[in-house]
Computed example of a mutant assay.
Amino acid sequence: MHRAAALPISIAALLRARSTAGCAMAASTPYVPPPRELLRPLAVPYRLLLGPGPSNVSPRVRAAGGQQILGHMHPEVLQAMDEIKAGIQYAFQTRNRLTLAISGTGHCAMEAALLNLLDGSDTVLVGTNGIWGQRAADIARRLGAKVHELLKPPGEYFTLRDIQEGLAQHKPSLLFVTHGESSTGVLQPLEGLGELCHRQGCLLLVDAVASLGGAPILMDQQ
């Protein structure tokens, strides 16, 4: 008697489940048609890019980007990463094996560098003569560091004496300068900065996003 009473309940539950599944399938059916833009080939016009970035890419680089995709653990990819490190060492003129390619924008690299070099107990001296010095100072403040800005009007650069006086006054653990200030076009001289920082006992962080490859950077000498 109990089994007979349970049978109608089981059938009703099965019917409800089938009805619910049907509603779910109907709800998952696409009802927005594909846009016409996806049905035609992508057309990219040629532009001569003369700003600090992005810049025009050579046909050789474009051809390399169109080659077969490999997995990130394939030995050929690991070999390419080693070759990229060697290329970075050449571009920066350094024999330091700790060279890393950041998979991101220049802003991402700036934030990664500051995040790994600063904490709440550190003092940083930022050479600010454009938007990138301002950005570095802002990031350092958000990290809790004590920030001092060495200020110059846009269009001017810092002399060795300017920086020497700032280091002596604030005694920072890190000095940040922008080599190629793309907001004004100013190229900051780097000669002698490494020696000043060694003498002061602080690290030197250089933003070369807009200058690397266009102006010499001799990392082991400067």
Rank of each mutant, 00 (worst) to 15 (best):
T94C: 02
Q188Y: 04
N96S: 09
L151N: 02
G201Y: 06
L42K: 11
S10Y: 13
T99G: 05
T99Y: 03
L175T: 03
C108N: 14
I217F: 15
L49C: 02
W132S: 06
A63K: 10
N96Q: 10
L70C: 07
P41F: 11
N96A: 11
A21H: 09
F176Q: 08
G166T: 06
L38I: 07
L7F: 12
L218K: 15
P45W: 06
H170W: 12
E76L: 14
L143W: 05
E83N: 13
R199T: 11
H148V: 01
Q164D: 07
V32W: 12
T184F: 07
S182C: 08
A101E: 12
P34C: 02
M73F: 10
I163V: 15
E195K: 14
L115W: 06
A21K: 10
S182T: 08
S55F: 06
A43Q: 08
L174F: 01
L50T: 13
G130H: 05
N129W: 04
M110N: 05
A26H: 08
G127V: 01
K171G: 02
G214K: 11
G192K: 13
S173N: 03
P41N: 12
D220L: 11
K146A: 12
D162V: 05
L70I: 05
C108G: 09
P75T: 10
A13T: 11
E156W: 04
P35C: 00
L175Y: 04
S211I: 11
Q93V: 06
S173K: 04
R161I: 03
G127A: 13
Y46C: 00
Q169P: 02
R18L: 15
G22R: 15
G166R: 03
V61P: 00
E195P: 02
R95M: 09
V61L: 14
Q200D: 02
S183P: 01
R199P: 00
R36A: 14
R141C: 00
L175D: 06
E181H: 01
L117N: 02
L212H: 04
L203T: 01
L167W: 03
L160Q: 12
L125D: 02
T105H: 10
C202K: 04
D119N: 13
A5Y: 13
G65N: 12
I84V: 14
G185R: 03
A26T: 09
A80M: 09
G201T: 07
E83T: 07
N129F: 05
G192Q: 13
G104Q: 13
D162Y: 08
T184L: 00
L49Q: 13
Q67R: 15
L48M: 04
V124S: 03
L118D: 03
G65A: 11
K171P: 01
I139M: 08
L174H: 03
P33G: 08
A24Y: 11
S10D: 10
G166H: 04
I84L: 15
E111H: 14
Y90D: 08
V57Q: 09
P54G: 10
H2Y: 07
G120S: 07
P59W: 09
Q164I: 03
H198Y: 03
G104M: 10
M1E: 10
A17R: 13
G51E: 06
D82K: 05
L143Q: 00
L14M: 15
E149Q: 11
S173F: 06
S28D: 10
E156M: 04
D119E: 00
R95H: 11
E191M: 06
G22M: 13
A6Y: 09
Y31F: 13
G194W: 05
L42T: 14
P8D: 09
G201N: 04
L114Q: 06
H179R: 00
Q221Y: 15
A215Y: 15
L212E: 00
